[in-house]
Design a protein around this nucleic acid. Structure first.
Length: 851
RNA sequence: GCCCGGGUGGCGAAACUGGUAGACGCAAGGGACUUAAAAUCCCUAGGCCGCAAGGCCGUGCAGGUUCAAGUCCUGCCCCGGGCACCA
């Protein structure tokens, strides 16, 4: 064998072997246990970033492990190929998004292959291929016919200068990214998926997902947001016509404390009242300025203005002023709230600001009064006071009594409210899947019939930033009505790219199927046994996928399947340091790859400079890799310099998968050094004789590490598996002579390491004659006999402080152990004649003497 | 603002169910080999005190529960993710 480790040659040969043996092709085999392992498919942005390398290495480690465990494994790869960045690149480079996207796919595919991922490339798919998005369209028409897809108005960000809809990302501090114009909210017709029809099921089923992180389930639960409360009607008159203003509240027990009403700027009352009130009209207009993002809305200063309209309290008959409030959301509930300043923090601030009355109606832990400043106790549950017939009732009793009385008057009843809203899927953009609807003047919205699917997206257009270019292409939108044959207009909106990614996992099971969305192969492979992706997808993508799986099930496509992902691993983000120069008075971000750092003997950064010109740079701390801070680390440079195995080993070793990972060049060096050590050891082994008998002590260490490592693989803590590999090498390297333990240890090491660093272990396994293919070797198991020990070491504490350690025979009883512990000199010093009040023995671990 | 996480040496981290805090590695310092460098190997290493044996302190901050707390409880501070049109 070669004396020195040559990653490039080793990796080329291993990849050639896997290719020639079709090692990763997956075929359905009902006799074998299947393992479907899936990493979230990438957006083809140009080149892989470290997050991809990390994500796909985690998945690859798992698939290789399960292969060695004898499972029939599927690990596919594809491309989330529609989306906004392609349009931005198209505008910048005057190249159609299709070409830009497909070039990126070709390059990134090469990169993935170079990393040696065990992927079945025969199943590759891209969401921008008509053979894929045809089935988006097909399912849309099915849901449309069932009423699970429908049209209503939705609010969007509108750039008044470019006359175009902006994505939230394109709104910077309330202004359009290209024009700088103040963004406005605008209501336009859109298509929605009725995800709320599945709200109850999506919520309940979270309890049956033991393989999901609690954190993600909790986030989804809160997002769906089931709350039980009461719908209450407040009557008012509009031009002498009696109307009812409905609100929803979870605190009906505080109804007697309501002193005002607040409605959203978009509420019909606000529109009506502003007709005769120019000041109010201006306020309502002002509320409509700005973007639609909830994070922004929640942080603006609470403001309001009275409408001059009064609504009648349904129980007391009191007249309550109706205000317009910029903090009331039209999209949640009824777009109106009752104001109970005494027991709601927002209402309290609003009432103080506008001098509205505050009426305490609940006794809280600090008393009956609600003097300023606001205290959180004011919002706690308690018994009713100042509430007439409800005085003395507890929260539950009061809600029941008030709901009953309201029902008698036909002005309210108990209701369940969801925070979850229906999913608006229309995008006024070009590079996406066309919504398959034809607008006919006489027949209305007609879904495109099956035999006319797919509605193909023309691929030659280049957007210019002023709206969807499909609107300027009569050849696309001029058509005839499928139902009456008269001239009609094709819908030019495309679908949210989340639609594409909500079912690709099912399509991977049968990507060549051209007669249906999925076939029976889906029921062999689904559900995905292990799904891996960034924590940033904890809600939207994962919730939409759960919804789609149910919608497809109810369409008969995935019989009996509700949950797409049995086990979920959410990986942390990859972070990097950032640096800037401000010589010109303006920050110029310098890529960390172009920075040299000088550190003191403690490792603190003394100074940093740019390599290219020696200019001093300022360290700006660590954060997510981003374009704006120019701190992205290109994994390709790392792969070119050290090889794929080092890149893979480093990403696994540096931190556990769920943690954030901070990029460090130096640690990469250490990973390379370890692989080189493995090679060197193997080379020396290949020239030695290992006839000597096994070493008991080292065998114990190896098998103990293996036992822990096997637990850690199951717990998906690959960083400690990597360190176990290092410990095993250190152990066998310590052996004074080559013996049976050298050989056994190396055989265990190579198999344990093979999922993480598959190329080098593939080469060594063959070179050293362990077998034909390490991937087909059995996974190593610890030998119980090697783990047997006659003596155990116990730590001795006195009053909980460590004072020494003793060796005791395995079978020693409590008294014997106590005697041995007290015979220790240092322990004696601290016990020193005092009475032993308590003797705590944790078998195999420690003793605590309490004196 | 709301929801969900996280905070352990100079750095990444380990400590599985409350039981030896800092395994493994990086960076650093010292040494060996070398004409020299690279590579490799050996040694040191949480802080403070001490020649040493050993002692005291130490897991974001302030309290609490316990024989025993990085781990459990209460309050606070800081950082990250998500908030429905980035993917």
């Amino acid at each position: 064998m070669q004396e020195t480790y040559d990653p490039a040659a080793v990796e080329r040969d291993a990849q050639k072997y896997w290719g020639a043996h079709a090692s990763f092709r997956s075929v359905e085999d009902p006799k074998k246990r299947k393992f479907y392992c899936l990493s979230m498919f990438p957006y083809p942005s140009g080149k892989l970033h470290m997050g991809h390398v990390r994500n796909y290495t985690i998945g690859d480690v798992l698939t290789r492990y399960y292969r060695m465990r004898g499972y029939n494994v599927l690990q596919p790869m594809g491309w989330d190929a529609f989306g906004l960045p392609a349009e931005n690149a198209a505008m910048a480079n005057k190249v159609p998004p299709a070409k830009w996207t497909r070039d990126n796919i070709a390059y990134m595919k090469k990169q993935l292959q170079g990393l040696g991922f065990a992927l079945d490339w025969q199943r590759e798919l891209a969401t921008c291929d008509a053979s894929y998005y045809k089935w988006n369209q097909w399912l849309f028409t099915r849901l449309f016919k069932k009423g699970l897809a429908y049209k209503k108005t939705g609010v969007v960000n509108w750039d008044p200068v470019d006359q175009t809809v902006l994505a939230n990302e394109q709104v910077i501090e309330g202004r359009g990214w290209r024009t700088g114009a103040v963004v406005e909210k605008r209501e336009i017709p859109m298509y929605f998926f009725r995800i709320t029809a599945y709200a109850e099921d999506l919520l309940k089923a979270l309890d049956d997902l033991p393989g999901w992180p609690e954190q993600v389930k909790l986030m989804q639960k809160n997002w769906i947001g089931k709350s039980e409360g009461v719908r209450i009607g407040f009557e008012y008159f509009l031009e002498n016509k009696k109307q009812t203003l409905w609100v929803f509240t979870t605190r009906a027990d505080t109804l007697m404390g309501a002193t005002f009403m607040a409605v959203a700027a978009e509420h019909p009352i606000a529109a009506f009242a502003s007709q005769k009130n120019p000041e109010l009209k201006a306020f309502v207009e002002e509320c409509k300025k700005g973007a639609v993002m909830e994070a922004d809305l929640a942080q603006i200063e609470k403001q309001g203005m009275p409408t001059g309209i009064f609504a009648t309290h349904p129980l007391t008959g009191e007249k309550l002023p109706v205000w317009v409030g910029n903090y009331v959301l039209m999209g949640y509930g009824e777009g109106a709230v009752m104001g109970v300043p005494a027991h709601d923090e927002r209402d309290y601030a609003f009432a103080l600001k506008y001098k509205l009355s505050i009426k305490p109606v609940i006794r809280h832990p600090a008393g009956d009064r609600v003097d300023p400043p606001w205290r959180s106790e004011y919002a706690e549950y308690g018994v009713c006071i100042n509430s007439g017939p409800y005085n003395g009732l507890s929260f539950g009793e009061a809600v029941n009594a008030i709901a009953r009385d309201l029902k008698q008057k036909d002005l309210g009843e108990k209701q369940i409210q969801w925070r979850l809203r229906d999913w608006g899927i229309s995008r006024q953009r070009y590079w996406g899947c066309p919504v398959p609807i034809i607008h006919c003047p006489s027949c209305g919205d007609v879904p495109v019939p099956d035999d006319q699917l797919p509605v193909r997206l023309p691929e030659h257009l280049v957007p210019d930033g002023t709206g969807n270019p499909l609107n300027k292409l009569p050849a696309f939108y001029e058509t005839t009505c499928p139902s009456c044959g008269e001239p009609a207009k094709r819908e030019t909106d495309t679908m949210d790219t989340f639609v594409d990614s909500s079912w690709y996992f099912a399509r991977f099971t049968c990507p060549d199927q051209d007669r249906q969305m999925v076939d029976e192969r889906a029921m062999y492979w689904m559900a995905v046994d292990q799904y891996i992706g960034g924590i940033e997808h904890a809600i939207l993508h994962l919730l939409y996928s759960r919804f789609f799986t149910r919608a497809m099930r109810d369409e008969g496509l995935l019989p009996g399947l509700a949950e797409p992902f049995t086990n979920l691993l959410t990986q942390g983000m990859v972070l990097a340091e950032s640096y800037y120069t401000d010589a010109s008075g303006r920050r110029e971000w310098v890529n960390p790859a172009d920075v040299s750092i000088e550190k003191d003997s403690k490792g603190k950064i003394l100074s940093a400079k740019r390599n290219s010109d020696g200019a001093p740079v300022v360290y700006d701390g660590i954060g997510t890799m981003s374009k704006s801070k120019n701190n992205g680390v290109d994994p390709q440079a790392l792969i070119d310099q050290y090889g794929a195995d080092t890149a893979r080993f480093y990403t696994m070793f540096a931190s556990p998968p769920t943690n954030t990972l901070e990029w460090s060049d130096e640690s990469v060096e250490g990973s390379y050094r370890f692989l080189k050590k493995v090679w060197d050891f193997a080379y020396r082994f290949s020239r030695a004789k290992c006839d000597a008998a096994a070493d008991r002590k080292i065998r114990y260490q190896i098998h103990l590490e293996l036992k822990k490592a096997n637990d850690d693989v199951e717990r998906q803590k690959f960083n400690t598996v990597a360190s176990a590999c290092m410990k095993i090498l250190n152990a066998i390297d310590q052996l004074p002579e080559w013996n049976a333990t050298s050989k056994e240890g190396l055989s265990i090491l190579l198999r344990l390491l093979s999922p993480i660093a598959p190329h080098v272990t593939h080469a060594l396994w063959r070179e050293l004659g362990f077998g034909e293919d390490v991937l087909r070797a059995p996974w190593p198991e610890p030998d119980a006999a090697a783990l047997e020990q006659d003596e155990v070491e116990l730590v001795v504490q006195v009053n909980g402080k460590l004072r020494g350690s003793i060796k005791v025979p395995k079978a020693a009883d409590k008294e014997a152990i106590q005697r041995l512990a007290l015979s220790n000199d240092n322990v004696q010093k601290f016990v020193a004649g005092q009475a032993i009040k308590k003797f705590v023995l944790v078998p195999g671990r420690l003793i605590n003497l309490v004196v």
